[in-house]
């Protein structure tokens, strides 16, 4: 199997996902609008009452960006589950293509969608008064950390979909992802929570990313020197779930 085939197979599978977008622009749009809606709801309806130092919008936007990356897990899981339950996966598996090109296509498309989603959120955040004053280099670093978290979520999503293989479990995860997303510092500082809950929240990998991102954007709630945690946590998750997902895909039908 030459390297050229590997690249071409992965590109073909990525193109497939992009062709799906072109076919279903409304679905893509809804995927982009949902986090924006959440941001606006929390910013204007729920917010204000939260006790944080500084402007709540400046605190909220990095948290929402982080939450959007975590919620991306659902989208990945849904897409993989749908694919697995369709006959086309059999044709892919009975072809002499690169092992795992199906997953690479999924990963590339999801990362691209998340990157676009981040830019949209940043734009909307800017429109409602959010400002990053950590400098452009740090801002890029923050976006990088967010996408790294998304990448870890992606492989968790693929793995869960491969293990469950059923739409019912996707629903269960769609529900469970909410408390996990909210048991973080995305919306509120752990200082405002009861002791044990605050500890849990601080240990949530998502909180590590949110804290580091706030720091890099120069927003309230950020703590200097936490970037390492926002790098290590997703890498640990990747180290566990990437091989599990690839192995599980390779063992379909055994």
């Amino acid at each position: 199997m030459s390297a050229a085939y590997v690249v071409s197979d992965c590109w073909t599978m990525t193109r497939r996902e992009l062709a799906h977008w072109a076919r279903q622009p409304v679905q893509v749009l809804v995927g982009l609008v949902f986090p924006v809606m959440m941001l606006l709801m929390f910013g204007y309806l729920v917010g204000g009452g939260r006790s944080v130092d500084g402007d709540y919008v400046d605190f909220l936007v990095p948290g929402m960006l982080t939450l959007t990356m975590v919620f991306g897990l659902e989208g990945t899981m849904t897409a993989v589950t749908q694919d697995l339950n369709k006959g086309v996966i059999d044709r892919f598996r009975a072809m002499p293509m690169t092992d795992g090109a199906v997953l690479v296509g999924r990963a590339a498309a999801d990362m691209l969608q998340s990157a676009v989603g981040l830019l949209v959120m940043v734009g909307v955040g800017y429109a409602i008064g959010w400002r990053a004053d950590g400098g452009p280099g740090n801002a890029l670093g923050a976006l990088g950390l967010l996408l790294l978290l998304r990448f870890a979520m992606l492989w968790i999503g693929i793995f869960l979909a491969l293990v469950a293989g059923r739409a019912e479990l996707v629903q269960a995860v769609q529900i469970l992802v909410w408390p996990i997303g909210f048991l973080s510092n995305a919306f509120a500082s752990p200082d405002s929570m009861p002791g044990w809950l605050g500890t849990f929240v601080e240990w949530n990998p998502m909180s590590a990313t949110a804290t580091a991102v706030r720091d890099l954007f120069g927003n309230p709630g950020g703590e200097p020197g936490h970037v390492w945690a926002a790098v290590v946590w997703p890498l640990v998750l990747l180290a566990v779930f990437f091989p599990l997902a690839v192995r599980k895909f390779g063992r379909l039908g055994k």
Partner: peptide, 27 residues
């Protein structure tokens, strides 16, 4: 070549898109 009991096609894409994709995956 395999023709299974259920259509092994990408239902969202057109006929030509499907065949071209499978052709590429056959290198």
């Amino acid at each position: 070549g395999l023709l299974g009991q259920h259509a092994a096609l990408d239902e969202e894409l057109g006929g030509r898109q499907n065949l071209e994709m499978f052709g590429r995956l056959h290198h």
